[in-house]
Computed example of a mutant assay.
Amino acid sequence: MIEIVKNGTNGCGSPQYHCKTCGAYGVLEPRQDYTEEEKEIILKAYQERSSMHGIERTFGVCRQTLSVWLKKRRNSFHPLRPR
């Protein structure tokens, strides 16, 4: 009996699977992470006043992913000290 069955697709269009043995859901071949160079290009496009929807259409990056990158970048700066 086959223990892994197809269970629809995720937001990126990759097929989701369900393991009947352990009950896990997931993608068998997850998409590769973005390189640091790709992240920098995308973040620079955002800084040049492109909208999040525009970046999503142009680069294929999910808005939630872009939001996480922006939050990490914002938190990496040192806070300003009052004079």
Rank of each mutant, 00 (worst) to 15 (best):
M1R: 13
M1N: 08
E3F: 10
I4E: 13
I4A: 09
K6R: 02
G8L: 07
G8I: 00
G8P: 04
G8H: 02
T9L: 11
T9V: 10
G11L: 12
G11M: 10
G13C: 02
S14L: 03
S14P: 08
Q16H: 02
Q16C: 12
Q16E: 07
Y17E: 01
H18M: 12
H18T: 13
K20Q: 15
K20A: 12
T21M: 05
T21I: 13
G23I: 02
Y25A: 06
Y25I: 09
Y25F: 14
V27A: 09
V27I: 13
V27F: 00
L28Q: 15
E29G: 04
E29F: 14
E29A: 02
E29L: 05
P30I: 04
R31M: 06
Q32Y: 07
Y34P: 04
Y34N: 05
Y34A: 08
E36C: 06
E36N: 13
K39Q: 10
E40H: 12
E40K: 12
I42T: 01
L43H: 09
K44R: 15
K44L: 09
A45P: 03
Y46C: 00
E48L: 08
R49G: 07
R49Y: 11
E56G: 04
R57N: 14
R57H: 12
V61I: 15
C62F: 07
C62A: 11
C62L: 09
R63I: 13
Q64N: 13
T65I: 03
L66A: 13
S67T: 04
S67V: 01
S67I: 02
V68K: 08
W69D: 09
R73F: 04
R74C: 04
R74F: 07
H78L: 15
H78E: 15
H78V: 11
P79G: 10
R81G: 02
P82N: 08
